[in-house]
Amino acid sequence: MTKEEKETCLWEVFIQPKNGLSHRHCGSVHASDRELAILSARNVYARRGEGQSIWVVKSTDIVSSDPDKKDEVFSSDDKIYRHPTFYDVPDDVGHM
């Protein structure tokens, strides 16, 4: 290993299977720049026509919510009125 040789950047890979569907995370690759990241993502995650568009994003550029605050961020138990089943409608109204 040469002296400067250290870990290359990690990129998260997202593939869009076809029009009408959104890009979906499928894994990650190591690459020194974005062209190589796309190339590598294609070789690693799309060998069988898995999609028609690839996004790569540097893992360090992803901002995520704090996993320890999951309850604060996502609690909705106290807001059941946001769900359709909260409302009583007579059965004979049919599908609504």
Partner: peptide, 16 residues
């Protein structure tokens, strides 16, 4: 493969 990794890194730095 060392030279390939070295070259890729140099290229990335130059472009940056």
């Amino acid at each position: 493969g060392t030279w390939v990794r070295d070259a890729a890194r140099e290229h990335a730095l130059k472009k940056q």
